Amino acid sequence: MLNVNQLQVGYGESNVVHQVSLQVGAGEAVALMGRNGMGKTTLLKAIIGMLPAKQGSISLDGKQLAGQPSYQRVRSGMAFVPQGRMIFPQLTVEENILVAMDRSNRSTTKVPDYVHAAFPVLAEMRDRKGGNLSGGQQQMLAIARALVTNPRVLILDEPTEGIQPSIIKDMARILNVLRRERNFAILVSEQVLSFALDLADRFLVIDRGRIVHEEERATLDQSKVSAFLTV
């Protein structure tokens, strides 16, 4: 499904991501684990097209995407929820979602029922401005905005940042339900191991821009992964 091969990304003469290869299968959830500054965000931004890659290939369902702008990658089946969420604070919850649908060429005046079923709080607060939501509610809104583009793969960058533990647990449960019901895969960068354990089928550890460890959920050595996350 999503296939990244020998991707190298950097700023000027400095390389941050060094020839990284990874795959995400249909319906699979993959967690990209690592400390701050190890290249997680840079890698995800290169995959979605927000940063240019110096070399390597990116394909989704066999379609080559390297070199294409981010909006073309979204139309090809990617969706990205960046670190910090990046909703429109002056628009209402409903307007935020409808704008995302319009940008994906799905012009409509109605938020899909599955969004309100998954995130009831967004239905309750449909007329509230995005900037007036809590951090957890803004993250739910950001995920909803991504989902209404009907992605084949949902890419999440540090979705638990600034979110209280009870909402983190709910977020993992909701994402698991949605990926089964909506048939999409997930690639998530994360430092909170408990969230990744609730969500991911497979774990990748990135250290200094290189994938240094990979393991399936069933056989995961939590202490080894935790060691990579410790400063």
Rank of each mutant, 00 (worst) to 15 (best):
A196V: 07
R217F: 10
A172D: 04
L199P: 09
R208Q: 15
R182N: 04
E216H: 08
D207E: 14
K169Y: 09
D207S: 08
V205F: 08
R208N: 15
R179F: 10
S166Y: 05
I168E: 02
F195K: 03
L187D: 04
D198I: 06
L175E: 01
I211V: 15
D221T: 06
S194M: 03
A200K: 04
H213K: 12
M171G: 07
R173G: 00
E216V: 07
D207H: 10
E216I: 09
V177I: 12
V177K: 14
R180F: 00
R210K: 14
L178S: 07
S223Q: 15
L204Y: 15
I174H: 00
F203T: 05
L175C: 11
N183Q: 15
Q191P: 03
L178I: 12
I174N: 01
E215Y: 08
E190D: 08
D170G: 12
R210T: 10
V188N: 03
S194E: 14
I186F: 05
A185G: 15
R210E: 04
Q191W: 07
L197D: 02
E216T: 13
I211K: 00
I168D: 03
P165E: 11
V212N: 03
I211R: 04
L193N: 05
V205W: 10
H213I: 06
R173H: 14
R179V: 08
A196P: 09
V192P: 01
F203I: 09
R208A: 11
R182F: 00
E214M: 10
A218H: 14
S223C: 06
D221A: 13
R202A: 08
V192Q: 12
D207L: 02
V205A: 11
V192T: 06
D201R: 02
R217V: 11
D207P: 00
K169P: 01
N176T: 11
K224M: 12
D207K: 00
L220P: 06
R210M: 03
K169G: 08
E214D: 14
I211E: 13
N176S: 13
E181Y: 02
R202I: 05
